[in-house]
Each structure stands twice: as C-alpha cells, then as structure tokens.
Computed example of a mutant assay.
Amino acid sequence: MEQKENKRARGRPRAYDPEQAFNSARDVFWHAGYGGSSLDDLSVATGMNRPSLYAAFGDKHALYLQTLDRYVETSRRRMDHALAADLPLAQALRQIYDLALAMYLPAGSEARGCLLIGTAATQAVTDAEVRERLGNGLRSFDDAFEIRLRRAQEQGELDADAEPALLAKLASAVLHTLALRSRAGDARASLEATADAGIKLICGKATKRR
C-alpha cells in the first residue's frame, strides 16, 4: 500500500507558478520570435512538460497570442500612467521613451527591443490573428499618445492648428524606431538622442515651459 502511494506521489505533475511560467514563455518568444521558439524551448523555460504546458496555456500559437495580449495591455497601462502625470508635454514624452528604453535594453542582459514590433511584425504576414493583434496594439499606443496630445493642445502647449492624431502616430513611430534600433545594437546614447529629436519635432516651438 505504501509503495503504491509513493509511486502515485512520484507521478504527480510538478507544481508551478502560472505567472512565472507565463513570463518565462514570453521571454522565449521575445528572444527567438514565434517561428524560432519550439515547444521544447518553451517546456525547458517553463519547467513544464508538453501536456502540462498545453493544459495550462493551450498550444504554442494560443500561448503566443496570450503573450501579445498581455504585453499590449501592460504597455498601455504603463503609458497611461506615465502620460497622466502633471508634466510638460516634452517631459511626459521623454518619460515614455525612457521607460521603453529600460525595457528594450534591460540591465545585465542583451538588447531585446519590443515584443510586439520585434516578433509580431514578421509573423503577421501569414497569420491573421497575429496581424489583428499587431494592428490593435499599434492603435492602442497611438491612442494613448493622442489623449495626452489633445490635453496638451487644450492647455496651450501645442498650437491650435496642430493635429493630435497625426502627432500621436509620429510619437509612436519614435517608439518603434527605438525598439528596432535597440535590437539592432544602437548605443543607448544614440537612442536617447533620437528620442530627443522626435520630441522636438512633435512639440516644436509651441511647447511651453511651466
């Protein structure tokens, strides 16, 4: 009887932390992209065998879609929080770009850029579900910038004839440039200079100091 119980105990699946496992899987996709990430890679990273991985998150494609959804949701929440701060527009934008660079260039690790831009842009060519998430993610980031830019216009930081919707896409374009160039190996100082140039272009001479 005791021997059977021991066998049953050894056969039980190993306990795991769902959040930690999810983040580990996300990092695999972030590093190698969807096509370059195998089930074995995901299994090793999460410490879960294939059946357990499937039971927890679905197949590889479902797991990848979940990582994109979570990434966009988390990024948008951080953007909203940073842009809601009572700061001049130029400083608010710089805060966003500083936060992005901290994520794209993690301390003590290789440059990884943006999960959405770095992995979904290529997968979207042949995958409609990824393409939808890529588009929704980009529009979500545009929307976060546009809300702040409209507030800046209402407060007189931008000219009355400025177009917040177009400026928001420009602000997002700077973000995407930082993501791509960080992964390509550009130095942080160069990336910060790019961010500053983008801020000057967006704000122009209409930006007022408080």
Results as ranks from 00 to 15, higher is better:
residue 33 G to H: 06
residue 103 M to P: 01
residue 81 H to Y: 14
residue 167 L to Q: 05
residue 69 D to F: 05
residue 195 A to Q: 10
residue 50 R to V: 03
residue 78 R to Y: 10
residue 9 A to F: 05
residue 109 S to R: 07
residue 45 A to S: 12
residue 108 G to V: 04
residue 65 L to T: 06
residue 24 S to E: 06
residue 171 A to Y: 03
residue 132 E to C: 08
residue 203 C to W: 01
residue 143 D to T: 13
residue 186 D to G: 06
residue 70 R to K: 15
residue 121 A to I: 09
residue 146 E to V: 12
residue 136 N to P: 07
residue 70 R to V: 06
residue 41 D to W: 00
residue 118 G to Y: 01
residue 95 Q to C: 12
residue 198 G to E: 07
residue 44 V to N: 10
residue 90 A to Y: 02
residue 105 L to G: 11
residue 31 H to G: 12
residue 64 Y to W: 00
residue 43 S to Q: 05
residue 63 L to E: 00
residue 68 L to M: 07
residue 107 A to S: 02
residue 194 T to L: 13
residue 205 K to G: 06
residue 32 A to L: 03
residue 121 A to S: 14
residue 161 D to S: 14
residue 44 V to Q: 14
residue 106 P to T: 09
residue 43 S to Y: 05
residue 121 A to P: 10
residue 150 R to D: 11
residue 129 E to I: 03
residue 121 A to G: 06
residue 43 S to V: 04
residue 123 Q to W: 12
residue 161 D to H: 10
residue 58 G to K: 03
residue 170 L to I: 14
residue 20 Q to S: 06
residue 176 H to Y: 15
residue 201 L to V: 14
residue 161 D to W: 04
residue 100 A to M: 04
residue 14 R to A: 02
residue 66 Q to K: 12
residue 143 D to L: 14
residue 170 L to D: 07
residue 101 L to Y: 02
residue 77 R to S: 15
residue 70 R to P: 02
residue 58 G to I: 03
residue 159 D to G: 15
residue 179 A to Y: 00
residue 67 T to Q: 02
residue 129 E to P: 00
residue 87 L to N: 04
residue 110 E to C: 08
residue 176 H to S: 13
residue 86 D to L: 01
residue 171 A to T: 09
residue 102 A to E: 15
residue 40 D to I: 05
residue 175 L to S: 05
residue 109 S to H: 11
residue 67 T to K: 02
residue 82 A to C: 04
residue 29 F to D: 01
residue 16 Y to E: 03
residue 49 N to Y: 11
residue 127 D to A: 01
residue 46 T to I: 03
residue 207 T to R: 09
residue 22 F to A: 02
residue 14 R to T: 01
residue 208 K to G: 13
residue 139 R to C: 13
residue 187 A to N: 14
residue 11 G to L: 11
residue 195 A to R: 08
residue 66 Q to S: 13
residue 123 Q to G: 08
residue 102 A to P: 15
residue 191 L to F: 04
residue 209 R to C: 09
residue 113 G to H: 03
residue 115 L to E: 02
residue 134 L to M: 06
residue 138 L to Q: 09
residue 8 R to C: 07
residue 23 N to V: 13
residue 126 T to W: 15
residue 58 G to A: 14
residue 94 R to S: 08
residue 81 H to S: 12
residue 5 E to F: 05
residue 142 D to I: 12
residue 206 A to K: 02
residue 80 D to K: 07
residue 181 R to W: 14
residue 68 L to F: 02
residue 81 H to Q: 13
residue 22 F to Q: 01
residue 74 T to P: 05
residue 51 P to L: 05
residue 37 S to P: 03
residue 68 L to S: 04
residue 41 D to R: 08
residue 55 A to T: 09
residue 91 Q to I: 08
residue 188 R to Y: 07
residue 66 Q to C: 10
residue 93 L to N: 02
residue 124 A to F: 08
residue 204 G to M: 12
residue 27 D to W: 00
residue 147 I to S: 05
residue 3 Q to V: 12
residue 4 K to S: 10
residue 57 F to N: 02
residue 149 L to T: 03
residue 49 N to A: 11
residue 206 A to P: 04
residue 197 A to H: 03
residue 106 P to M: 08
residue 10 R to I: 09
residue 129 E to L: 09
residue 71 Y to R: 13
residue 107 A to T: 01
residue 9 A to R: 10
residue 40 D to E: 12
residue 137 G to V: 00
residue 156 G to D: 11
residue 37 S to V: 00
residue 100 A to E: 08
residue 191 L to R: 13
residue 65 L to R: 07
residue 199 I to K: 04
residue 16 Y to G: 04
residue 86 D to M: 05
residue 105 L to P: 11
residue 45 A to Q: 15
residue 76 R to A: 13
residue 19 E to K: 05
